[in-house]
C-alpha cells in the first residue's frame, strides 16, 4: 500500500517537472516522428522489393520496427531516466540518502523519474503497426494481440533487468557513461528481426543480450507466427532475468555498504 502511494507521488512529481518544460513535448514529439521516418530508410533498402531475408518480408520487418519504437519509448520514458540518476547518486555520494529511507532502494531509484512525453513513441508505434497490417491486408487476431501483450510484458521485464545490471556496474566502475552508450548502441540492433543475424551474433542476441525477446518475439506474436514453446520460454526467461537482476542489485548494495567510506 505504501508502495502504491509512493509510486503515485513519484509519478505526479515527474509530471509536474515535465509540465515545466512543455517545449520538450513538442520537440520530443517531432523528433520521435521524424526519426522514425528516417529510420525506416535502411529497412526499406534491405527489405523492400527484395527477396525475404531470413524469412522476413518488408511488412513483417516493419512490425518488428514498430515494437522497437514502442520499447525505445518505454526505455527512454520509464526505465532510463531514473536509473541514470543512480550513477549520479553514487558519484556525488547522495545514494546514502536513498539507503536511509525505509523503503526498498531499488524501488525508490527505479521510480524516481519518468519522461511522460515519450508517450508520443507509443502513437508512432501504433501508426507503424497500422501501416504494416494495412499492407498485409488483414488485421491481427484478438489472440495474437493478447499474446503480443504478454510478450511485451516479458520484453519490458528483460529490458529493465538488463538496465539494472548496467546500473549495478556503477557500484564497481566509477564512470558508466560508456556502458550506457554501449547499451544504446546494442539496443539499436533490436530494430532488425533477430533471425537476420547468423552465427555468433544470433547466439549473442538471443541469449546474452536478448534482443530477440525484446522485439522479434512480440512481432511474431502479433503476426501469429510465434511458436507456443518459444512464448513460454520467453516468459520464463524474463522471470529469471528479473530475479537475477534483483540478486545482482542486492549484491551491489552490499558491496557499496561494505566498501564505501
Amino acid at each position: 500500500m505504501r508502495y502504491v502511494r509512493l509510486f503515485g507521488t513519484q509519478l505526479r512529481r515527474s509530471l509536474a517537472l515535465a509540465l515545466q518544460y512543455r517545449l520538450d513535448f513538442v520537440t520530443s514529439g517531432l523528433v520521435s516522428i521524424v526519426w522514425s521516418v528516417i529510420s525506416i530508410v535502411p529497412l526499406y533498402v534491405a527489405f523492400h522489393g527484395r527477396p525475404a531475408v531470413g524469412g522476413w518480408s518488408y511488412e513483417s520487418a516493419l512490425v518488428v520496427f514498430g515494437w522497437f519504437t514502442l520499447l525505445k519509448g518505454v526505455l527512454e520514458g520509464a526505465v532510463n531516466p531514473s536509473l541514470v540518476q543512480v550513477v549520479d547518486h553514487i558519484r556525488m555520494g547522495t545514494l546514502d540518502f536513498v539507503l536511509l529511507k525505509p523503503a526498498d532502494a531499488q524501488f525508490l531509484v527505479s521510480t524516481a523519474r519518468f519522461e511522460p512525453w515519450k508517450i508520443v513513441d507509443l502513437g508512432v508505434a501504433i501508426a507503424i503497426f497500422g501501416y504494416a497490417f494495412a499492407r498485409l491486408g488483414h488485421p491481427p487476431s484478438a489472440a495474437a494481440v493478447a499474446l503480443a501483450f504478454a510478450m511485451l510484458c516479458a520484453a519490458v521485464a528483460v529490458l529493465y533487468s538488463v538496465w539494472i545490471l548496467v546500473v549495478a556496474a556503477a557500484f564497481w566502475v566509477v564512470r558508466v557513461d560508456n556502458l550506457v552508450y554501449l547499451f544504446d548502441s546494442v539496443f539499436d540492433f533490436a530494430r532488425w528481426p533477430s533471425s537476420v543475424f547468423k552465427g555468433a551474433f544470433s547466439i549473442l542476441f538471443t541469449f546474452v543480450i536478448p534482443l530477440a525477446l525484446m522485439t522479434t518475439f512480440p512481432a511474431q506474436a502479433l503476426l501469429g507466427t510465434l511458436a507456443p514453446g518459444t512464448a513460454i520460454a520467453a516468459v520464463v526467461a524474463s522471470l529469471l532475468a528479473a530475479i537475477g537482476a534483483r540478486r545482482v542489485w542486492l549484491r551491489a548494495l552490499a558491496h557499496y555498504t561494505s566498501a564505501s567510506s
Binding site: R2, R5, L6, G8, T9, Q10, R13, A16, L17, Q20, M92, G93, T94, D96, F97, L100, K101, P102, A103, L108
Partner: peptide, 28 residues
Amino acid sequence: ALVMGQKQQLLWDLPPVETFALNRAIYD
C-alpha cells in the same frame, strides 16, 4: 535521520516542498 552538510537530498530542480511530500510518502 542523517544530515550531511556537504551532501543534499533535496531534489535540485523542484521546490523543497516536493521533497517534503516525497519523504512523507516514503516514511508513510
